[in-house]
Design a protein around this nucleic acid. Structure first.
Lengths: 197, 197
DNA sequence: GACAAACCGGAGACTGTCTCCGTATCGTCG
DNA sequence: CGACGATACGGAGACAGTCTCCGGTTTGTC
């Protein structure tokens, strides 16, 4: 519908691309290590660039987060494609929710960052959640018609519930002695999924 | 077991008590208005004291949060007491979880603050969650023996799930058009509670 | 009314965010 | 190849929030 007004976007200059990639590479490490609230100036340092360079490429934390999640989301959407052709539509939805929760729980604070960006206009992170929610929608509809799901939850609610599960699993795991979030997640997820029937 | 080594704790000086109470009063307002991450120096200002005074009474944010939640938690525990004698143990647990989620969702960021403090030793906020979790335990046991609850969730998990629901309801409500968190919460809660059966 | 203990409050060190602009680098064209 | 314009760099620094230290003030008591 909209005229393809994509600017010619001449390719980045070599040094710019080099820095861009270095920043994203370091950001992935830093987010994994210290959560999504780690210092951006620190990331700039570790990437060998000044803070000005980082903020030119990524005007805010969401932009950097989005860039750091591109690969992970690509894999997620590939999984959705496969699950859409699975035999068991119920099991497919289960697996999808699990994958979603693991995605959102990969870094400390990520679920929160995603959920907040979801409600903010113009957040690149929130925008790119659109396709993931669409995928959720398709899998949910399939589990409703071919499977046994009856609850009237929206895809958006399921998406957020997945984030909320990641949040809960992380909090429940820390300090319960031995368990990790990977142990908690299936337990909590099964509680939720039984509620859909 | 431990010797009651409680110091005589002579009563606070009049000006100290006055400041303490002013700070807590302002803090409740500020947390409600701007979430649990609002500026503490700002609270000190609005309470008419210097930052030093605030930090002497409340060495960190958790301590202030704890003081600001005393009344609310008191009401919560009174509700638990009542629910322990309710006829329908299942409905009692439902109502308790709802109250718990509303408590944790009262201020933006509160669920997160509580969950984090829960895993940190020496946090007064986390410590005071103990009685609430104990209350949850009793209601859960009662719903297991007298009611129909069969899932093997721990009280601690339920407590965290309540926080996670508050988190999810808040995120789902913002930006879905018209709804408020109060509309979302029952929907999400019912999904969870059906999963316990 | 005077003294010691308790308490106040603001200056400021420190950390993290984000911007501005003089300088350096890149790609291209003569 | 050399030079020019566009593009990009990076660090100094403004700003905001956290938290501490200590000289000065207030309170309760004898």
């Amino acid at each position: 519908m909209s005229v393809e007004a994509v600017a010619p976007t001449r390719p980045m200059r070599a040094d710019a691309r080099r820095n861009y990639e270095a920043i994203v590479r370091v950001a992935i490490e830093a987010f994994a290590e210290h959560g999504t609230n780690t210092s951006l100036d620190d990331i700039a340092n570790r990437a060998g660039v000044g803070p000005g360079t980082l903020y030119r490429h990524f005007p805010n934390r969401d932009c950097l987060l989005e860039a750091a999640l591109v690969d992970s989301r690509y894999e997620l959407l590939a999984l959705a494609e496969r699950l859409l052709h699975a035999d068991d539509a119920d099991a497919a939805l289960d697996e999808w929710m699990f994958a979603l929760a693991r995605h959102a729980g990969a870094w400390d604070g990520l679920a929160d960052s995603i959920a907040q960006s979801l409600n903010r206009e113009k957040s690149p992170l929130g925008a790119s959640c659109g396709e993931v929610i669409t995928a959720t929608q398709k899998l949910l509809e399939r589990a409703s018609t071919l499977g046994t799901v009856t609850a009237d939850a929206t895809a958006r609610e399921l998406f957020i519930m997945a984030g909320s599960l990641a949040w809960a699993a992380d909090r429940a795991a820390r300090g319960n002695g031995r368990g990790s979030a990977d142990d908690e997640l299936p337990r909590l997820l099964s509680l939720l999924m039984r509620g859909l029937r």
